[in-house]
């Protein structure tokens, strides 16, 4: 087991370097000049000398190999440098957003687990009954409705309901306050995006739970358990569900990693100052260093999450013997 863990850890290194290579060179292929945008802004004239100086200061006139080596060294030392636009440290800029993105991802995951496991189980146990049909409809709707659209509907509903109830229109707060400073304010801001994304996320997990559980319920050992007269509840909870959760855990893990940087549109709808929003801003302003930094953090989250998912596999299914 420990040998497997060590091998998986080693494999993370080429994965990260490969991702860094792709990110670095794809960004350089993008049209647009950060200095032109930064200095020219909304129509100001900037002479060529200033642009050349700006490129020198940002190290953009160094050979690509040198720039790439700097970037990889930055990843190794967890120092991504400074933003080409704001001049602030990238770790500082990301740190400000990471907390919010992490909280939304955790809350959305909790919402998704709370919905998907019970509903998926119910749907499998009561296969082809009205319960199953309702659950499947809810799940398909969740997959079909983009979370940002659901977000807009939630905001409109909040405006209408609050006006009907209190006479004034209420919208969630626009600025983030950490949960330990003001939990009510924090939750009144983040619960809505968590519900919007958690619902879509749960839809995938619900269907996965259902199909996986149906498969497990047809296994010989479940039939044996029933033949032995074991109570159905115990069969489901103790024997079937635990094994059925293997693919569900994979889905939840990947979705969690995705949520860390992939909530671009939802963040914009709810005006969340998260990593997704920062990524969009840095791409549109051709801020290479910032874009590289954020994408690398997302890559690291994916790699680490996958690592833990693999470890979790072994815990959930004793048949898996990695060593």
């Amino acid at each position: 087991m420990w040998q497997y863990v060590f091998k998986r850890l080693l494999l993370m290194i080429p994965t990260v370097i490969g991702a860094a290579f792709v990110i670095f060179f794809l960004l350089r292929a993008m049209p647009g000049d950060v200095c032109e945008l930064k200095l020219g802004g909304e129509g100001a004239y900037v002479d060529e000398a200033q642009i050349t100086l700006c490129r020198e200061q940002l190290g953009l006139d160094d050979p690509l190999a040198v720039q790439f080596a700097d970037f990889v060294w930055g990843i190794a030392t967890l120092d991504f440098g400074t933003s080409m636009i704001t001049g602030r440290a990238i770790t500082y800029e990301m740190g400000l957003r990471f907390e919010l993105s992490l909280q939304v991802a955790i809350m959305a995951t909790i919402v998704a687990i709370m919905i998907s496991i019970p509903l998926g189980t119910l749907s499998a146990v009561y296969q082809n009954t009205w319960i199953d049909y309702i659950v499947r409809t809810v799940a398909i709707a969740g997959i079909a409705i983009p979370s940002f659209w659901l977000g807009i509907l939630i905001l409109l509903a909040l405006l209408s309901i609050s006006e009907a109830m209190t006479g004034t229109r209420w919208t969630p707060p626009l600025d983030y306050v950490p949960i330990w400073e003001d939990p009510v304010y924090n939750l009144s801001m983040l619960i809505w995006p968590a519900v919007a994304t958690g619902y879509r996320y749960s839809a995938v997990a619900t269907r996965m739970t259902r199909s996986s559980l149906l498969e497990v319920l047809r296994e010989d050992y479940v039939r044996t358990a029933r033949a032995k007269g074991l109570v159905e509840k115990i069969i489901i909870n103790r024997h079937a569900l635990k094994n059925a959760l293997l693919p569900v855990v994979t889905v939840i893990g990947i979705e969690f990693a995705f949520l860390m940087g992939g909530l671009v549109v939802t963040e914009q709808v709810f005006n969340l100052n998260g990593l997704g929003n920062l990524l969009v801003q840095s791409v549109t302003s051709v801020d290479y260093t910032m874009t590289q930094g954020i994408v690398m953090v997302i890559v690291l989250v994916f790699v680490i999450t996958n690592f833990f998912v693999d470890i979790l596999y072994a815990w959930l299914d004793p048949r898996i013997r990695y060593s």
Binding site: L155, R169, V269, F270, N271, N277
Partner: peptide, 12 residues
């Protein structure tokens, strides 16, 4: 950054 968020901010 999003106009809809700015409109809703004033509305709310």
């Amino acid at each position: 950054p999003k106009m809809s968020a700015r409109v809703q901010a004033i509305e709310g």
